[in-house]
Design a binder for these strands. Structure first.
Lengths: 247, 247
DNA sequence: TAGGATTTGTGCGTATGTATT
DNA sequence: TAATACATACGCACAAATCCT
């Protein structure tokens, strides 16, 4: 059984961000929904719930201290994002991504990464620059003590940092959706690769992007990201011959 | 009060398509969900439910002869797609699209239209070619008797035809999401424009795309589409100074 | 300002479908 | 093959929030 609370700083950042949005959060129900939604999504893409896992509505409802009804609303959204699939009489299953879809998503993510620098790029603020410096620091730290889960968390936070470089909200939403669809497959494959090497490559990517961001060249940052997605895909293809089959 | 039944051929095509998908439809519940979801989405983007409309869960449940619970599942998905917003104690409101988001979605849709020709383009089958010939025929017919609603329906069907030109499923999903987010805003603006002229331009677009599809040049078709989205956006910008404000 | 009408959110019991023994 | 266990789907009653008079 997992703990409900989490001192994960990514969770906290999300919660704080949603609270500081375009309108003051007066609705506790909406806040709770966002919290649970983000939490479950994180568990799925960090492989706390690996593909094929059967989630129990009742158990989750009990964990969060709510009824099944509001929980089902969360599960419905996760299903609409393609992360879950509820089947009557069977259960709520964490989806897997077949190899074809994985390739397609990666191809599309490459193009979208480049678009970050073309559509409404936003000049990095000192705060954003500071964020990337912090990410770079965490990258260095990770190299000294490689860990798959910390790697995945840094990858998520780096992704969200990149999304701050465009003001095109639909692009952000769509990129996020695609990212979360394949992040767990990427993480699953990492364990079969040279972790130290992957961490080193990622640390270099962060450093390069940080450099581009520091001089305000969002377009360059987006091209760096694109190329690294591309290279990451090539390495994944060379490492992972096995395919998961699941609708 | 609207009728539940619809002899809309787009609806029928969708229903038939979902039934003939990759797995035999043995689940009546899922089929009903898809049917109601597609129907409500169509009503929203055909302005049967204009932005700001308050939908009643109870009334809709009664119309479809079901309880509020399964209906709320449909509304939840529509809300996750950004077409609705449910507010406790107020109602379920059809969203409007503020001008900024409209611009951003159009910019993104332009890029995605081009990607159809770059990512997994699929050689048009004789069936696909026949579909575009039929669309062209409907375009000619529409020119003789211009009608906003028929125009919108043809636009939707044309869009779905274009989606058959790529096998990249994530690209299709995302393009569809963005299309349905702005289709109703486009339709709303059409009424303030020269309908006959817009229909004529659209008919030409269909004819051009049909020509490209006939010779198997999907890339050309995607560039034609991109340029027409671009030009349509310019015309919309020149016509519609007023802005809707709604989260 | 207050109270009633209306709407969505929630909790729970039951129906229905699936898998296993 | 049939029965049993267990999961999600559903319907309904009530709570909570908002709006209008």
């Amino acid at each position: 059984m997992r703990e409900y609370e989490t001192d994960n700083d990514y969770e906290m950042a999300r919660a704080a961000k949603s609270g500081g949005g375009d309108e003051t959060q007066v609705n506790a129900s909406r806040e709770r929904f966002q919290r649970i939604y983000t939490l479950l999504r994180n568990r799925i893409c960090l492989l706390d719930y690996p593909p094929g896992t059967r989630l129990s509505e009742e158990a989750l409802a009990a964990e969060f201290g709510i009824s099944r009804t509001p929980l089902r609303r969360v599960l419905g959204w996760l299903e609409s994002q393609g992360l879950l699939r509820s089947v009557h009489g069977v259960g709520t299953i964490v989806t897997d991504v077949e190899i074809d879809a994985f390739v397609q998503v990666y191809q599309l993510r490459m193009e979208l990464a480049e678009l970050v620098g073309k559509l409404s790029p936003v000049p990095p603020t000192p705060e954003t620059i500071g964020l990337f410096r912090e990410l770079e620091r965490r990258g260095s730290e990770l190299q000294q003590k490689p860990d798959p889960r910390a790697f995945a968390q840094l990858n998520i936070d780096f992704f969200h940092g990149l999304m701050r470089l465009t003001e095109n909200e639909p692009l952000r939403e769509i990129s996020e959706r695609l990212y979360y669809q394949t992040a767990r497959i990427w993480l699953k494959s990492i364990s079969q690769m040279n972790l130290a090497q992957e961490v080193a490559i990622f640390a270099r990517e962060i450093a390069e992007v940080r450099t581009a961001v520091e001089i305000g060249d969002v377009s360059a940052a987006s091209h760096i990201r694109r190329s690294h997605i591309s290279m990451s895909f090539v390495r994944l293809s060379n490492t992972k011959p096995e395919t998961a089959t699941q609708a």
